[in-house]
């Protein structure tokens, strides 16, 4: 499973770099949509779900995802966007503690961390 996804670093970084230069409002719209699209792709693939059946309101617990899948999804998102999400699997038992419950929560989390990454050091 990981073999197909672990080493796509170069592509993803290039793509993100291209996405990180929105100058006008409609670019922002594009960029937001692309983040959501990429997250949905990753989740749909792991859940073996039809991509079009996923909405931001879809709860992760309604998908056929086990704890290994969640960890893999976070890993793939981190690789895709070159971000670090401080997710601890011990908190997945308590969805509130994990910080995300729905597909939309995951997208929001990614936006939050990409945003942090853009802050000057």
């Amino acid at each position: 499973m990981t073999g197909s996804t672990s080493f796509c670093h170069t592509n993803s970084l290039t793509e993100v770099a291209a996405l990180e230069r929105p100058t006008e409002e409609h670019y922002w719209g594009h960029w937001m949509a692309d983040v959501e699209g990429a997250v949905l792709d990753i989740i749909a693939e792991k859940a073996k779900s039809d991509r079009s059946s996923l909405t931001p309101q879809t709860e992760l617990t309604t998908l056929t995802l086990d704890s290994l899948d969640i960890v893999e999804i976070i890993f793939q998102i981190e690789e895709r966007f070159d971000i670090s999400i401080p997710y601890n699997a011990n908190e997945s038992v308590d969805a509130a503690g994990a910080g995300f419950k729905t597909v939309g929560d995951v997208v929001a989390l990614v936006h939050q961390h990409i945003g942090q990454g853009q802050q000057p050091a």
């Binding site: 960890v71 601890n88 699997a89």
Partner: peptide, 8 residues
């Protein structure tokens, strides 16, 4: 760390 089960 990648397994996400270590306590911080």
């Amino acid at each position: 760390e990648a397994m996400r089960i270590l306590a911080p």
